[in-house]
């Protein structure tokens, strides 16, 4: 039998995200942190130069990480390595693909490179994850070829409230679609600013066609457990781990709470003795034009 080998298929890209379900993806800025994350049971690491809390504190333009740093992390761990490209910056994405990263996050945490267009993700073999605050945004990203969606939250704050808002919003919009009669779906597609076929698919199946993770402000095991109960398939933790007092133990605790999210006894047990959580910033105290959730269109 002739075996044709096809890389970068939709099934392979979305399937990779399916295999991350129930897991925690951790932001790391060096090899030491990547190893701590792997030892704690992270399903993947996100290699970046500065965690969102530092990007927020230091300001300036935030870009793709140094390839040397990404190479070192790829060499140091056996779990998947993800990295961030700026919104619309297809050349950064090309570089990341050439480095062999396993997933690219086209991320609002970095400074956008294009205020109209996102990356045409169909052109890549490597899969992409993108942020969304609502269903229309999620479906637009899928239309551009994203293979995984994460709710945005407000990165670098340690304030989980926006992650909750976005997850509830996406879930309720999916529910609303699935209860519509077919003749209402046309207008729904117009309102969601998403292609009719994709909207109709969600209406029919009652679910997003890809994995939906949560991100932005998750800082404690209970945060992770809450987001999983709200319907997240898994958790991104950025500043929450390595900006805390005891990263190794907190990482381990968030991993266990994500798996046993429906068992408060386990969440209680792993929440003990973790030391200081990241101090955090209330989203309400951040000037509107400094909020990351509004980046992406």
């Amino acid at each position: 039998m002739a075996n044709e080998v096809s890389t970068g298929t939709g099934r392979v890209k979305r399937g990779m995200a399916e295999m991350l379900k129930g897991g925690v993806i951790m932001d790391v800025v060096n090899v030491e942190q990547a190893k701590i994350a792997e030892d704690a049971g992270a399903v993947a690491v996100m290699a970046l130069e500065r965690v969102p809390a530092d990007i927020r504190a230091e300001g300036g333009v935030s870009r793709m990480s140094d390839p040397d740093m990404i190479d070192k992390i790829i060499a140091a761990v056996s779990i998947p390595v993800m990295a961030k490209a700026r919104i619309g910056h297809f050349a950064e994405a090309q570089v990341l693909e050439s480095l062999g990263v396993d997933y690219i996050d086209e991320s609002e945490v970095l400074t956008p490179a294009d205020y109209s267009n996102h990356i045409d993700k169909w052109k890549f073999t490597v899969p992409f994850v993108c942020g969304a605050t609502n269903l229309g945004e999620a479906l637009r990203r899928l239309t551009e070829g994203a293979a995984m969606i994460r709710s945005k939250g407000e990165a670098g704050t340690g304030d989980v409230s926006n992650a909750v808002t976005h997850m509830r919003k996406i879930r309720s919009e999916v529910l609303r679609l699935s209860s519509m009669s077919p003749d209402e779906v046309y207008v729904a597609a117009k309102e969601l600013q998403a292609p009719y076929d994709l909207v109709a698919e969600v209406a029919r199946t009652g679910t997003l066609p890809t994995v939906l993770f949560t991100a932005g402000g998750i800082a404690t095991p209970a945060d992770a457990a809450m987001m999983m109960q709200l319907g997240a398939d898994g958790v991104f933790v950025g500043s929450g781990i390595f900006k805390s007092g005891n990263p190794a133990e907190r990482a381990d605790a968030v991993v266990q709470a994500t798996t046993h999210y429906d068992n408060p006894d386990v969440v209680a047990k792993v929440s003990r003795g973790l030391g200081e959580a990241m101090v955090g910033i209330n989203v309400a105290d951040i000037p509107v034009h400094h909020r990351l959730e509004d980046r992406g269109w």
């Binding site: 044709e4 080998v5 096809s6 693909e97 990263v101 396993d102 997933y103 490597v126």
Partner: peptide, 14 residues
Amino acid sequence: RNAFGRQVQSFESE
């Protein structure tokens, strides 16, 4: 483990 390589080498085949 990971014998076929990284994600860009992930594939489908009959």
